[in-house]
Design a protein around this nucleic acid. Structure first.
Lengths: 98, 98
DNA sequence: AACGATACTACGGCATTGCCGTAGTAAATG
DNA sequence: CATTTACTACGGCAATGCCGTAGTATCGTT
């Protein structure tokens, strides 16, 4: 057994101890979900019609309309998805391909 | 039969003709939105508890529970988002950072 | 000018989900 | 054995999802 291995084990034990002590950070990684999303802005920046936008990213056309017309607010998961469409649109099409 | 009705029928026939002619190019990139998503599978592969999973990707804990317990089915946007979490989890955290 | 296509607004309306809370079960650990 | 973590199970209201239809504005074509 190398000294390296020993150090690793010790480090593990130390963090286990810290966990038990309550010294450890039990906070969960918590992402921020935006309360408002400007759907029209995201869509027009991509140069797409409502229909094309819906078809390209999997939204229901009726939902896109409700959102842009301010009739309804996209719910949590939709807001997150819209953020991804804004920042990394390709990630969406990749995930839905195949 | 009103003139209005006739016009509608004619319009329908015309666009059907155009469609058959190939004159109409209505090609929209259309992605496939999965009807079913195995939330538990996605979560456990990431080695996260329901709480950590929810906190990390922005879901409501109650929604994750409803989905895994088969009480409710994630709706369209949520299914898409879950697919992205499955294929490119980092893309989600990147989009929600900052 | 009349027409057809495109893009969008506006909205009725039902089914379904989102999301909150609480109680109960099971396993691990001090 | 009491406590903590992780999860099941579910009541219940408010809100959205999603479908459909009608109406307006614009534009290129005939």
């Amino acid at each position: 057994m190398t000294k390296r291995a020993f150090d690793k084990i010790k480090a593990g034990l130390d963090s286990a101890k810290a966990y038990l002590d309550g010294t450890a950070d039990k906070s969960l990684y918590r992402v921020h979900v935006p309360e408002k999303v400007d759907v029209r802005k995201i869509r027009t920046r991509l140069g797409l019609s409502q229909e094309a936008f819906a078809a390209t990213y999997g939204f229901a056309l009726s939902a896109v309309r409700d959102w842009e017309q301010g009739r309804r607010k996209p719910e949590r998961s939709a807001r997150i998805l819209l953020k991804i469409v804004e920042k990394e649109p390709e990630a969406v099409t990749r995930a839905l391909a195949g």
